[in-house]
């Protein structure tokens, strides 16, 4: 690097309020910083962060900036102030933020304050020949991938959860830990309460098998048919947007799709789901997809490895029965082999 590096913004600054995502950002940050031959700085906001800071350095950060807020208030305001201050102080060429809801708000507002661009939910990030930050992201509901160049300084991008593996620890790595304080304007948003959302027992994102129900089910009580299939498969029950948001037959944390969760199970069974883009985005990463839909022209069939064109009211119970039957026979065989 020439002496100009001192003048021109350089390096990568990362931030996520989610510790896991913060570690994952180091992987992308390290790769981009290596390309730019520059420094990787990570920002952490809160208190008692030393251990996490050391972990970040072991995982590739050159510097960890610890910002201690003077009061408690809704996170986005504090994170934005801390990130803004860190950008002014460190003058990075790129800022990476974790794509949580709070993270996207912070990144967007930072972008507006700095009058620069931000690419959200980047699936991959690289630096092209011109030095621009080039991101791939989903577009038009996920059936298309867009390549977007962010030529701003700094160039901001947000990165989704679980997209990258956190870099392995290297306990010999050395870096600096800096502590700062944040100046905050008078709060405009006051927290009245924070409640955990009523959560389903199962986290559908962690299930190996997901069975999802859509508008093909006519009555709320019939969701039980699909639930029985989920049980027979040892899987989790999920739903498409009409089921969770419009009909409210399942809680929102069971929603799969663009406005809900993205799952990557090994087996995904779509029951009575038409396959609107909104939904497909959330299940496209499944390893094997089974679609059960009476409409042979439903778009879900194009997204499936195995399609059953038929009435789910007949197919789903038959499938559940066949699975239970298979399991019983296997259990009987096992017992027999032991006797």
């Amino acid at each position: 690097m020439s002496g100009r590096a001192e003048d021109a913004p350089s390096g990568v600054l990362t931030f996520s309020e989610n510790p896991d995502l913060a570690s994952e950002l180091l992987a992308v940050g390290r790769a981009l910083a290596a390309g730019a031959g520059a420094k990787l700085t990570t920002l952490m906001v809160g208190s008692a962060l030393r251990e996490r800071a050391e972990d970040a350095i072991a995982r590739g950060a050159d510097e960890a900036v610890l910002a201690c807020p003077p009061d408690t208030r809704p996170g986005a305001e504090t994170y934005l102030a801390a990130l803004h201050a860190a950008v002014l102080a460190h003058r990075p060429a790129m800022v990476l933020v974790g794509s949580t809801r709070t993270g996207v708000e912070v990144a967007a507002r930072l972008g507006q304050r700095l009058r620069v661009g931000c690419v959200t939910d980047a699936l991959s990030l690289e630096i092209d020949d011109t030095g621009a930050l080039v991101a791939t992201r989903r577009m038009y509901g996920g059936q298309f991938l867009a390549r977007v160049a962010n030529r701003s300084t700094p160039a901001i991008a947000t990165v989704p959860w679980k997209r990258f593996e956190p870099p392995p620890r290297d306990d010999d790595r050395r870096g600096t830990i800096t502590e700062t304080t944040i100046q905050l304007p008078p709060p405009r948003l006051r927290t009245v309460a924070i409640q955990q959302r009523p959560r389903s027992a199962l986290d559908i994102r962690k299930a190996a098998v997901v069975v999802a129900v859509g508008r093909g089910v006519k009555r709320q009580e019939d969701v039980a048919l699909v639930e029985a299939l989920a049980e027979a498969l040892g899987g989790a029950l999920a739903g498409s947007r009409p089921i969770t948001d419009d009909l409210r037959w399942l809680p929102p944390d069971r929603k799969i799709g663009l406005s809900g969760l993205t799952v990557r199970p090994s087996l995904y069974v779509a029951c009575g789901i038409s396959g609107q883009i909104e939904h497909v985005v959330g299940m496209r990463a499944a390893r094997t997809v089974v679609a059960i839909n009476s409409d042979p022209t439903a778009p879900i069939h194009a997204e499936a490895d195995y399609s059953v064109v038929g009435d789910l009211y007949a197919i789903v119970p038959a499938l559940a029965a066949a699975l239970r039957d298979g399991r019983q026979r296997q259990a009987a065989a096992t017992i027999e082999s032991l006797q």
Binding site: G111, R115, V116, G117, V119, A132, V134, M139, Y140, Q143, F144, L145, A146, R147, V148, A149, N150, R151, S152, V289, H301, A302, E303, A304, D305, Y306, S307, V308, V309, G310, D311, A314, I315, P317, A318, A321, A322
Partner: peptide, 27 residues
């Protein structure tokens, strides 16, 4: 601030097999 370099649809790798049969139980 941004430049859209290109937008394309990635190809689907699904097998798209229709499972048919003689009634629901057979399927």
């Amino acid at each position: 601030t941004l430049e859209l370099l290109g937008v394309t649809a990635p190809p689907s790798a699904r097998r798209r097999m229709v499972v048919g049969g003689n009634g629901p139980d057979d399927v």
